[in-house]
């Protein structure tokens, strides 16, 4: 069950882009508003809305309504015996593919046939739903048993929103450029701390670059329990917000002296221990309130554990993760 986290000016837009990432319809996703968009003190600082979403866990549905485009394959009841369950599971992230549709798909009255007509490229599977629903207005076939009318309304909505998000993205600064800004900022800071540093840059995910700062005299930049290192990362985020704009994609993390990596590992170990306790006892355990980054580590760690799930409770800064026995979430 993979969560995606998105930010945007409003929760609605964040949800929309989360849907784009997941490649599912709103009805088939679960949302959690991590934080509302906020206007800060003096009406100046805008904190983007942050939303988490995932594909709703599989529940049996009426056959007619089985038109989900799930991302997480491999869940038993999902996609079985469907014409194209497999192919549409691949690489749904690229939201740009949405809505270009495969004209003509809608004309296939036989679902098996439509899966069999290979040769129209790897995009076929995932765009099929859209293609069909685009066609629904004109050539919807009774035999498909799909909710034609609502489908086409929805897909029209979606393509409109698609256009809008594409426009938004024009201002987005590429991640490597953001990393340049971050690195330059930290270099200037280190100079004023009297530390000589060098940088190691890693792409830790598609949308995350980690810059590890190494050097001999980093003690003061790390601080007690890594407090200063965390503060510097926070400042990097703020600098990027100002210099790269608030609609930037992805994330640049600065890890002074590698403390964050060590801390993350320690937190993950702790979470696995707690998960084991929940599994044994069957009782949910609430963890201390944590910041969003730490909560994500927790969720991600627990996601790989069997027999337990996580939920989040409360509002920042007291938002906390609760580890629950699987099925109770």
């Amino acid at each position: 069950m993979e969560w995606v986290e998105t930010t945007a000016k409003t929760t609605a837009e964040a949800k929309e882009s989360a849907l784009d990432r997941l490649g599912v319809h709103e009805d088939d996703a679960e949302f959690e508003v991590v934080s509302e968009a906020k206007t800060g003190l003096f009406g100046r600082v805008k904190e983007d809305a942050r939303v988490r979403a995932r594909v709703r866990p599989a529940t049996p549905r009426a056959k007619d309504d089985r038109r989900r485009r799930s991302k997480g394959g491999g869940r038993g009841s999902r996609g079985q015996g469907r014409d194209n369950g497999g192919s549409r599971n691949s690489g749904n992230r690229g939201s740009g593919n949405r809505g270009q549709g495969n004209k003509g798909q809608g004309n296939k009255s036989d679902r098996n046939k439509s899966s069999g007509n290979g040769g129209s490229g790897p995009d076929k599977g995932r765009s099929q739903d859209k293609g069909r629903s685009h066609q629904d207005g004109r050539s919807h076939q009774e035999g498909q048993g799909r909710a034609g009318r609502t489908d086409s309304t929805r897909s029209t909505d979606r393509s409109k929103k698609q256009e809008r998000s594409v426009t938004d993205n024009e201002a987005t600064m590429p991640l490597p450029e953001q990393a340049d800004i971050a690195q330059e900022f930290v270099a200037g800071l280190a100079e004023r701390f009297g530390a000589s540093v060098d940088f190691v840059r890693e792409d830790v995910a598609d949308d995350e670059i980690r810059i590890t700062v190494n050097g001999d005299d980093l003690g003061r930049m790390v601080g007690r329990r890594g407090n200063t290192a965390v503060a510097i990362d926070e400042l990097v985020r703020t600098v990027l917000q100002r210099q790269a704009g608030s609609s930037r994609d992805g994330r640049v993390r600065v890890d002074i002296g590698g403390v964050r990596a060590r801390r993350t590992e320690a937190l993950a170990n702790f979470c696995r221990e707690q998960a084991a306790l929940v599994r044994e006892s069957g009782m949910a355990r609430a963890l201390e309130p944590m910041g969003g980054a730490d909560r994500k580590v927790t969720h991600d760690t627990i996601a790989d554990e069997d027999g337990v799930d996580t939920i989040s409770e409360g509002e920042d800064p007291n938002r906390r993760v609760v580890i629950v026995p699987a099925g109770d979430a």
Partner: peptide
Amino acid sequence: GDMGRVIGKRGRVAGAIRTVVRAAGV
């Protein structure tokens, strides 16, 4: 108009600045 930026949501940025500045003065 820049004060909001410097202070940040719930004073987070201000707190980070204080932390870093103190560290520099240690």
